[in-house]
C-alpha cells in the first residue's frame, strides 16, 4: 500500500512536471486565465448590485471556485477518456497495482494542475482589483474547502469519464457544465436569476465552490448580497459532502466496470474508429 502510494505519487509529480513544461499545455492554462482576468478587469468598475463593492473583485474569487470545479470534473473526465483511448489505462491494468498507482498519480497531477490554474488567476488578479482580503477565518475555510472540493468533484469527474466511450462525446458533458457556470453566480450574483434557476444551481457543486471562495476572499459585509444573507458554510459543507459521498459510491463501480472492459482489442477498436472518423 505504502509502496503503491509512493510510486503513484511519483507518477503524479512526473506528470505535473510534464504538463508544466509543455508549451501546448501551458497555453491551455494561460488562455482561460487571461480570459478570466480580462473579465475581472472590465467588471472592476461595475459594482455588485446593492453595494458599492467592485463586481470584478467579487468575480475573481467566484471564478477560482469555478476553476476548482473544472479541475475536478472536466480535467479528470477528459484525461480518463483520452488515456483510455491511447492505452494508458490498459497499461496500468497490465502492471501489478498499476491501476491504483495510476489513480493516485491522477489525483496528485490534477490537483497540482488545478492549483496552478487557480494561482495564475489569483496572483495577477489580486493586483487588478481592490477589496480582497483573507483573514484567519478565511484561511481556516480554505483548509476544509480545498480538500472537500477535490473529494466532491474528482470522483464525479472520474465517473463521467468512465462512462464516456468516445472522446467526441465529451462535448455533451462540457455543455451542461458551462450552463451551470452561467447560472451559478460566478460572473453575476445568483440573486439576479429566476427562483427556479437558483434552485437548480444550488443542487450542484459549482455554486457552492464559488460561494465558498467568495467567503474566503471577500469582506463579511458582502455576505448580505448572497442568498440567505450569509456565507452558508454549513450548507456549503453539506452539499459538497453529499456530492463527495455520491461520487465515492458511484465512481468505483463505474471505474471498475470500465477497467474490466479494457483489453488490447478494445483499444484497437477505438483506434480504428478514431481513424475512420478523422477522415470524414
Amino acid at each position: 500500500m505504502i509502496e503503491t502510494l509512493r510510486v503513484g505519487a511519483a507518477r503524479g509529480l512526473i506528470e505535473l512536471r510534464q504538463t508544466l513544461t509543455n508549451g501546448q499545455d501551458l497555453w491551455g492554462y494561460f488562455f482561460p486565465s487571461v480570459g478570466l482576468l480580462i473579465t475581472v478587469f472590465f467588471t472592476n468598475q461595475a459594482t455588485v448590485p446593492g453595494t458599492n463593492f467592485s463586481l470584478g473583485a467579487a468575480t475573481l474569487p467566484s471564478s477560482l471556485g469555478m476553476l476548482l470545479a473544472f479541475g475536478g470534473l472536466l480535467t479528470i473526465a477528459q484525461i480518463l477518456v483520452v488515456e483510455r483511448e491511447d492505452g494508458t489505462l490498459l497499461r496500468a491494468k497490465a502492471t501489478p497495482h498499476g491501476m491504483n498507482g495510476y489513480l493516485i498519480g491522477k489525483v496528485i497531477a490534477v490537483g497540482g494542475m488545478t492549483l496552478f490554474s487557480v494561482l495564475i488567476v489569483l496572483i495577477p488578479g489580486a493586483f487588478l482589483v481592490d477589496g480582497l482580503r483573507v483573514d484567519l477565518g478565511g484561511v481556516l475555510t480554505l483548509i476544509w474547502l480545498l480538500p472537500l472540493a477535490v473529494v466532491a468533484t474528482m470522483p464525479i469527474g472520474a465517473a463521467v469519464g468512465s462512462s464516456i466511450e468516445n472522446p467526441r462525446n465529451l462535448g455533451f458533458v462540457m455543455m451542461p457544465i458551462f450552463g451551470l457556470v452561467a447560472i451559478s453566480g460566478i460572473f453575476y450574483p445568483i440573486t439576479g436569476m429566476p427562483g427556479w434557476l437558483q434552485a437548480v444551481a444550488q443542487g450542484f457543486p459549482i455554486y457552492w465552490l464559488g460561494l465558498g471562495m467568495r467567503s474566503v476572499f471577500l469582506p463579511d459585509a458582502l455576505a448580505s448580497v448572497e442568498l440567505g444573507d450569509s456565507w452558508r458554510h454549513f450548507e456549503t459543507f453539506g452539499v459538497l459532502a453529499a456530492w463527495a459521498v455520491a461520487g465515492l459510491l458511484v465512481a468505483p463501480i463505474l471505474m471498475r466496470r470500465m477497467a474490466q472492459r479494457e483489453s488490447g482489442s478494445a483499444v484497437a477498436a477505438r483506434r480504428e474508429r478514431a481513424l475512420t472518423t478523422v477522415g470524414r
Binding site: L90, H97, G264, A268
Partner: peptide
C-alpha cells in the same frame, strides 16, 4: 500489444523506471 500509443509525453527511460518500480 499492438496498438499502444500511451505515455507520449514521457521519456523512454523515465517510463521504464516508473513502470519497473511497480
Amino acid at each position: 500489444l499492438q496498438s499502444w500509443r500511451d505515455h507520449g509525453k514521457w521519456r523512454v527511460q523515465e517510463l521504464l523506471d516508473h513502470l519497473g518500480a511497480y
